[in-house]
Design a protein around this nucleic acid. Structure first.
Length: 780
DNA sequence: CAGTGAGCGAGCTTCCGCTTGACTT
């Protein structure tokens, strides 16, 4: 029988440690926190020093019971939860809930899961640090008070079931404010001049650019004309060495960012893949804010670099955390075994593993060395000089395995930049042959919309949220409908290009797509209304620096410099006052906006949020008079930005366009685009057709075309039941039984199936359990 | 793939952080 019970937070960790400690130790996991505040209003007794009422949630009862039993049988209980605020609280909750005794309980901590680290920890146990526990309680209580007092204000003033909190509300605010910056942004055009020169016998080609841009087209044109007969010489040539150092190994946040940029993973996908790698022992813990590598890891990395790449590629490095709120209870995310350059598993797992391996290995490698060359080119007819930049890699160093990407790079990838190309051999004074010269109109860019990962980056910079909550927070603000992750189509924009051809300037107009977005975060109307309400009435809470401020207080509590109940009182009293005041005095917020007057009816046009979402209204509801006209906004339209014209357009549809086979045809726009409704059937309009242009004749044509296409698809129909048919689909034939599509089992020939065969298959398919509507459906 | 948009009232919603499943494809 084991004499010792050691409890950690994660079962995967428990398994590893059990292997290190031998049979005198039973190592178990608490699966994170084992208790939480009760859900009801009496969870916190404010008048009584913020006394808390805790309960063991249903899904934790089993764990707690097992731990209780094992604790009774053990001589010594080792509480080995993480060494941070939350970890200390977990130990305290375990102590309380399991009914442990001071005499045989030991609190130990370690930062890395290695045998020496754990043995060392066991040699120097301590007591539970109640200052740290108090800091956690203050954090927990403050979050509950903020969340559970603020949310009901929203239910009263905006809509039921809404939520607000210290973290999520700031996340939404970041998205709303970024969207406003983008809407406000006015792009400025200027001409960028690029010249292409040839040199030497082989007529090698390189590009040079004018450092200044011309706002006026006439200035750009004059420049080009001036160059028509000019002589170009290298006026100066400068070569400077430069170097680049590798990035620190991954934390949760940087892993999410790189996996998003390089692999296109959402933050939750990254985390669940990382969890799988962690559970199968391939990487260290994936929820961390530390950039530290353990000594054993450093040794292993050094060994691997020396043997795989050679000594000159190795460089010992120690990284310091940059994020203010870091608690560093774990190591950085790294492979468990540096000599495993790749791994098995599905391709996403493999790609994430390789990313982690490369980043970790590169972090202990030498700098990359470059030679940067800048050539200035004089123009005999102008004072301006053209500049050509070249970069030559002299030693690859860490670039042999890994190059960190950046958001800016993503931004610039459309801009055909000539920067950092390789220059041919050049000499000072050398005369160059001009091959091409043009001036292209370029526009300043609005600030970039956030991706999930770039939002995580900002939250981390502000010290808001923790590694374990970044992914859930991003999901929450989407699930609440405050923010949507969407693709949006761009708009066509014209720009001008001036080109010097045969010593004459030729003007050309070209067009490009601008503003197209893929998987970016957009605020919704309800997100905007909730945010504006919170900013107006609870500015202190949604202030970007609120968390940083309270974190400072929590640190003081943790150091025993501040009393946690005093701190909470100081916060709570004015906050609660604000809540009461707002409930009493604030108006209901519907985000209403007046767009102007409808020229046809002379009535007021307004938009606001209704029960079913945002809608436009023409006129006002007055008793005894005709009801106002209503129309819902379409996807991509927002209260804040819709114009009067766009709003009035909404009333042109649905439109009756005529009669076909004694039934009316109606054109409307639905979730999947414009369609014709006829005899309870839907017919999508062909792409590019304006629904307002569709008349009776065009409508009939569309319906007949669709019927013809359906007939072409038909393989077989049955007299017994007109709803039952076999059709040719994209992936081969299938049975269509009413609304249900049924796969044809392998080995059966579609054309030979009888009605009875189809009926049996369809009935079987009907009985099959339907997949749930959402992955994480509502909790009961 | 609708068009809707009044009011009342009971009963419900909601936070952040620490952990994994149990589900699909």
């Amino acid at each position: 029988m084991a004499k010792n019970l050691l409890i950690v937070e994660s079962p995967a960790k428990a398994k590893t440690i059990e292997g290190y400690l031998g049979k005198d130790f039973t190592v178990k996991s608490s699966y994170g926190h084992i208790r939480d505040l009760v859900k009801s209003e009496d969870a916190i007794d404010i008048a009584n020093g913020f006394t808390q009422k805790y309960e063991v949630p249903a899904d934790k009862k089993q764990v707690v019971n097992e731990l209780k039993k094992l604790a009774k049988e053990a001589d010594i209980i080792w509480l080995a939860s993480d060494e941070d605020r939350e970890g200390e609280a977990i130990s305290w909750h375990l102590f309380e809930t399991l009914g442990l005794k001071d005499a045989n309980t030991r609190r130990i901590v370690f930062h890395e899961i290695t045998k020496p680290a754990i043995l060392k920890a066991i040699e120097s146990p301590r007591k539970i640090d109640y200052n740290l526990v108090n800091a956690q309680q203050a954090r927990r209580v403050l979050d509950r008070l903020v969340g559970f007092e603020l949310s009901p204000v929203l239910w009263k003033k905006i809509k039921p079931s809404l939520s607000a909190g210290r973290v999520q509300s700031v996340a939404v605010r970041l998205i709303v404010e970024r969207e406003r910056e983008i809407n406000k942004f006015k792009p400025e055009a200027a001409y960028r001049v690029v010249a292409v020169f040839t040199t030497g016998k082989n007529r090698e080609v390189f590009k040079a650019e004018l450092p200044t841009r011309f706002v006026q087209q006439s200035d750009a044109e004059k420049f080009l004309n001036d160059c028509a007969d000019a002589i170009f010489n290298i006026s100066s040539l400068e070569t400077k060495p430069s170097k680049r150092a590798p990035a620190a190994p991954f934390t949760t946040s940087t892993l999410q960012q790189e996996a998003s940029r390089k692999l296109g993973f959402s933050v939750s996908r990254t985390m669940s893949l990382a969890q799988r790698l962690y559970e199968s022992g391939k990487i260290t813990y994936m929820r961390t804010d530390s950039v530290n590598l353990s000594d054993t890891a450093l040794d292993a990395a050094a060994k691997e670099i020396n043997s795989a790449f050679g000594e000159k590629y190795y460089q010992f490095r120690k990284y310091k955390t940059k994020s203010a709120g870091a608690q560093e209870a774990h190591e950085a995310i790294r492979p468990t075994y540096f000599n495993h350059h790749t791994t098995d598993g599905d391709s996403a797992e493999v790609r994430l593993y390789e990313l982690i391996w490369k980043r970790s290995i590169a972090s202990q490698m030498s700098e990359a060395l470059f030679e940067k060359t800048t050539a200035k080119i004089s123009i005999s007819t102008r004072k301006d000089e053209l500049v050509a930049n070249g970069e030559v890699l002299r030693f690859d160093g860490f670039l042999k395995v890994y190059l960190e990407s950046s958001d800016e790079e993503e931004e610039n990838k459309n801009d055909h930049n000539s920067e950092n190309a390789i220059l041919p051999p050049l000499t000072k004074g050398q005369q160059l042959n001009l091959r091409d010269l043009n001036a292209t109109e370029r526009f300043t860019r609005p600030p970039a919309r956030n991706t999930e990962a770039s939002l995580v980056k900002k939250l981390e910079e502000l010290g808001i949220g923790r590694p374990s909550t970044y992914a859930p927070t991003i999901s929450t603000i989407q699930n609440r409908g405050y923010v949507v992750k969407e693709d949006r189509e761009g708009k066509t924009r014209n720009y001008h290009v001036l080109t010097l051809i045969n010593k004459k300037v030729v003007k050309e107009q070209k067009s490009e797509i601008t503003g197209a977005e893929k998987a970016k975060l957009f605020p919704t109307d309800i997100g905007v209304v909730v945010n504006d309400f919170l900013v107006q009435h609870f500015n202190g809470i949604v202030d970007y620096h609120f968390t940083a401020g309270v974190e400072k207080k929590f640190d003081e509590i943790a150091q025993g410099l501040e009393d946690w109940t005093k701190m909470l009182h100081k916060f709570y009293e004015p906050f609660h006052q604000e809540v009461e005041e707002t409930i009493k005095t604030a108006d209901k917020a519907r985000g209403e906006r007046d767009l102007g007057i409808d020229p046809k009816s002379d009535k007021k046009v307004s938009v606001r949020i209704g029960r079913y979402g945002p809608f436009v209204q023409i006129g006002e509801a007055v008793e005894g008079e005709e009801k106002p006209a209503y129309a819902s906004l379409r996807a991509g339209q927002m209260i804040e930005t819709i114009t009067l014209e766009e709003a009035l357009e909404l009333f042109k549809l649905p439109k009756k366009i005529g009669v076909f086979e004694d039934k009316e045809m109606t054109v409307a726009i639905g979730k999947f685009g414009p369609y014709i409704r006829h005899n309870s059937m839907f017919y999508s309009l062909p792409k590019g057709v304006d629904p307002l242009d569709v008349d009776e004749k065009a409508g009939i044509e569309i319906i007949e075309n669709k019927r013809q296409a359906d007939a072409d698809k038909l393989i077989k129909s049955f007299k017994e039941d007109p709803e039952m048919r076999i059709e040719n689909g994209r992936w081969g034939p299938y049975i269509k039984s009413g609304k249900l599509n049924v796969k044809i089992p392998k080995g059966k020939e579609a054309a030979e199936l009888t009605y009875e065969d189809c009926k049996v298959l369809a009935d079987a398919a009907e009985k099959e359990p339907k997949k749930p509507a959402k992955k994480f459906a509502k909790k009961k």
